[in-house]
């Protein structure tokens, strides 16, 4: 294959900037051709770079599913937890060592069906977690079943005659539950997504970014929606950037307009701040700060 490689002069020390952030001994990854999860990982790496994060203090927590595999590829302290429980695991991790920047990276089925309760409660508490949801509108790992995000009329493995139950609007849900930061992008919007990810890495509180991503194998194939590139073109054509749009107007449909942008960016005291304030007030001198790493 060398005929493709040597057309341009490539400096000897040239290296893909994502490589130091990944466990390259695990490549190639399991994601299908045309899947967008890897694209979101590129954006995350750029965000880690631009936010000047101390990588030894960034931990990544995933649940189960295709996006759940991100933790396994990230060259960080990384935790592949049980289905739906990335957020409560991350909650314990963050509270035991508040110096950690804890990122939850998981899919729509994991975070909003089996893990939905944890999502709304972590947002309510304003737990200082950065939640990135790669939304491919289906359960891909298990074969393309209906997810709480699957739009109406879509054919899925468990809705062979079309989905008739209403879907969640994730950004509206996140805002209503109390998230400090809410944005939505697609894998077409790589620079905007990287910027949003960088912003949340420097913001306190519960931050949520939804990223729409193609799933050619399990979602599109059943619905004759073409391949990954076709979905990327659809994202390009159908997306409308509306920063600050009321999240209630941002519901997704099978093939309609996709409102993207940053919808919410507000400051609320986070869980640890609230806890400290309350306990200081009640206990005064008797209050003992939690030890970052408990005396073992």
């Amino acid at each position: 294959m060398s005929e493709f490689e040597c057309v341009m002069e490539i400096p000897e020390d040239a290296r893909n900037p994502v490589e130091p952030f990944l466990r390259m001994d695990r490549m190639p990854h399991i994601w299908c051709p045309g899947c967008g999860i890897g694209t979101t990982v590129n954006c995350f790496v750029r965000a880690l770079l631009s936010s000047k994060s101390d990588l030894d203090h960034v931990a990544i927590v995933s649940g189960i599913g295709c996006t759940g595999r991100v933790a396994g590829y990230a060259n960080l302290d990384s935790f592949h937890t049980t289905h739906g429980r990335a957020i409560p695991f991350a909650t314990g991790l963050k509270l035991a060592n508040p110096k950690l920047q804890v990122v939850v990276y998981s899919g729509d089925g994991d975070l909003f069906a089996i893990g939905g309760n944890h999502f709304i409660h972590a947002a309510r508490r304003n737990m200082d977690l950065k939640v990135i949801c790669v939304n491919n509108l289906t359960y891909a790992m298990t074969g393309g079943q209906t997810a709480p995000t699957t739009p109406g009329q879509v054919i899925s493995a468990t809705a062979p005659y079309g989905v008739f139950e209403p879907a969640f609007n994730l950004v509206q849900l996140a805002e209503a539950a109390g998230a400090a930061y809410v944005a939505r992008w697609t894998t077409y919007h790589v620079t905007q997504l990287a910027r949003s990810m960088g912003e949340v890495l420097n913001k306190k509180g519960f931050c949520f970014i939804e990223v729409l991503s193609p799933c050619p194998t399990l979602y599109q194939r059943r619905n004759k929606m073409g391949d990954g590139l076709d979905t990327m073109k659809y994202y390009k054509e159908a997306s409308k950037i509306r920063h600050g749009a009321p999240t209630g107007e941002c519901a997704l449909t099978k093939s309609g307009e996709i409102v993207v942008g940053k919808f919410v960016d507000r400051d609320r005291p986070d869980y640890l701040e609230l806890m400290r304030t309350q306990l200081h007030e009640s206990l005064g001198e008797r209050y003992a700060e939690p030890e970052a790493v408990c005396g073992l």
């Binding site: 493709f4 893909n16 899947c35 694209t39 590129n42």
Partner: peptide, 24 residues
Amino acid sequence: YVVAGEKCSGCDLCGMYCPDFAIF
């Protein structure tokens, strides 16, 4: 493969898009 190398600005958008970490 490269068909118009002289036009490359080195913007790395290809690297941002590539889901397989195969280009930059």
